[in-house]
Simulated scan of single mutants.
Amino acid sequence: MSTVSTDRAAPALTGSLGTGSIVFMVVAAAAPLTVVSGTVPLSRWATEPPSPPRS
């Protein structure tokens, strides 16, 4: 068997993360939390039996 060696260096990071990219990542991370915070109370309201009125 022969081995092939490549002497390529990994590409350097350029630091091109701009404001738009950061805003996009924050909004993308917050979207699932928004769905859960809206869906969980709605599903609990729809599935739990109503409680008797408190006097």
Rank of each mutant, 00 (worst) to 15 (best):
P49K: 03
V35S: 04
P32A: 01
S16W: 12
A12T: 14
A30M: 05
R54Q: 03
W45D: 02
G20C: 05
L17M: 08
T3S: 08
S55M: 08
A10K: 10
A10S: 12
G18Y: 00
S43I: 10
R54N: 05
E48Q: 14
T14A: 15
T39K: 07
P11C: 01
V35Y: 12
G18E: 02
A31V: 11
V40C: 04
T34C: 04
T19F: 15
S37Q: 14
V36S: 01
G38E: 05
G38Q: 12
T6G: 02
R8F: 10
A9R: 06
S2F: 12
A12H: 13
A28T: 10
I22N: 01
P41T: 06
P53I: 04
S16M: 09
I22Y: 03
A10T: 06
R54H: 03
L17F: 08
S51D: 06
L33T: 10
A29K: 01
I22S: 00
I22L: 08
V26I: 11
V36T: 07
P50D: 13
M25N: 08
P11A: 06
G18K: 02
E48D: 10
G20Y: 00
L17C: 02
S5T: 15
A46K: 07
V27A: 14
V36Q: 03
M1Y: 09
A28Y: 10
L33S: 13
R8A: 11
S16K: 09
S37W: 10
V26W: 08
D7F: 04
S51K: 11
R54F: 08
S21K: 07
A29W: 09
M25C: 05
G18T: 06
V4L: 14
G38N: 11
V36C: 03
P11N: 07
L13R: 09
T3K: 08
V27H: 00
S16G: 14
V27L: 13
V36Y: 04
T6D: 14
S51G: 06
P52M: 04
R8E: 13
P32E: 01
V36N: 09
P52W: 12
P53V: 11
L17N: 07
